[in-house]
Design a protein around this nucleic acid. Structure first.
Length: 276
DNA sequence: CTGAGCCCCTGGGCGC
DNA sequence: TGCGCCCAGGGGCTCA
């Protein structure tokens, strides 16, 4: 479900409601991906940050990490909702403070409490690349990372190592804007420059639209995102490319459904598999 | 260390 | 209507 724009939207929705609040009680349902929240009770939420698709709650000498997975929803409620997929409830102290609620149908989400900055138990977070909307996202290292090798550019971008926060939707959207075929192995310096900018454009526009809902995603108020109508290729197989009217094609790259415009994103000699 | 493949889990949609 | 198959914004583990 959620990629950087959706997670950032949730963060902005809930942060004002939980920051400075003390956690009265925290309960988590069973599941191998849900660590104990026993260490959360009694601590105060100082700040809510985000790294890639992970939400980081600063609890002073502990850090609560939440990854929404494919179907996770995190929102405030006056009381814990009747929902068969309710996985965790964090009760906040204070009059009318309410509950921070985690609902996760597919159980792919992750909950963990660690010492601040100790991410070794969460490998993707530990190896997370630069935040695309910050000054950390420098061009030269990115250019090197996407320059070549045996990996399709899409798989490389999904790995979170070259840049944080991209998932299946926004990888396809960014590659479309940059005119790069998702299966291309290696991106020229010139294309890398366009891609570097396209990633930031796509993510900023999606955040402005409060994220994309095509099925399960809901924001911190359980509302749908508004970005679906602005997608250029994702989930648009057979529909005309907004730029050239060529029908969008669907294929499979890195075991994920992949959408692209065969005219705007050709497999060229320079980008094709097998080129040295 | 890397990449490919498969796994985790639940539910919706579609074809037969 | 019912069943089976495939698909789905996530990450992680194992094996070559």
């Amino acid at each position: 479900m959620p990629e950087l724009p959706e997670v950032e939207t949730v963060r902005r929705d809930i942060a004002p409601q939980v920051t400075g609040r003390r956690i009265a009680r925290a309960e988590v349902g069973p599941g191998p991906r849900y660590g104990s929240l026993a260490d959360a009770a009694g601590r105060t939420i100082r700040q809510v940050d985000r790294r890639g698709k992970y939400l980081l709650f600063d609890l002073d000498d502990r850090e609560l990490i939440i990854n929404l997975g494919m179907s996770g929803r995190l929102f405030m409620a006056g009381s814990p909702p009747e929902d068969g997929h309710l996985r965790a409830v964090i009760q906040l102290d204070g009059p009318g403070a309410g509950y921070l609620v985690f609902v996760d149908m597919r159980k792919f989400g992750t909950l963990a409490i660690v010492r601040p900055g100790e991410y070794h138990a969460i490998p993707t977070l530990a190896a997370m690349g630069p935040e695309p909307l910050s000054d950390q996202f420098a061009f030269e290292p990115f250019c090197d990372a996407v320059a070549g090798g045996g990996t399709p550019i899409k798989a490389l971008l999904l790995s979170q190592k070259a840049v944080a926060g991209l998932g299946n939707i926004y990888v396809d959207e960014a590659l479309n804007r940059a005119g790069i075929h998702p299966a291309a192995r290696g991106v020229s310096r010139k294309r890398a420059l366009v891609l570097h900018q396209a990633i930031r454009d796509v993510l900023e526009e999606a955040i402005a639209n409060r994220g994309t809902t095509f099925s399960l995603y809901r924001d911190g108020y359980m509302r749908e995102g508004n970005h679906y109508a602005d997608l250029r290729v994702y989930d648009r197989a057979g529909k005309p490319c907004p730029a050239c009217r060529t029908p969008i094609e669907k294929t499979r790259v890195a075991q994920r459904g992949t959408y692209f415009c065969p005219n705007c994103q050709p497999i060229s000699r320079l980008t094709a598999a097998g080129r040295s």
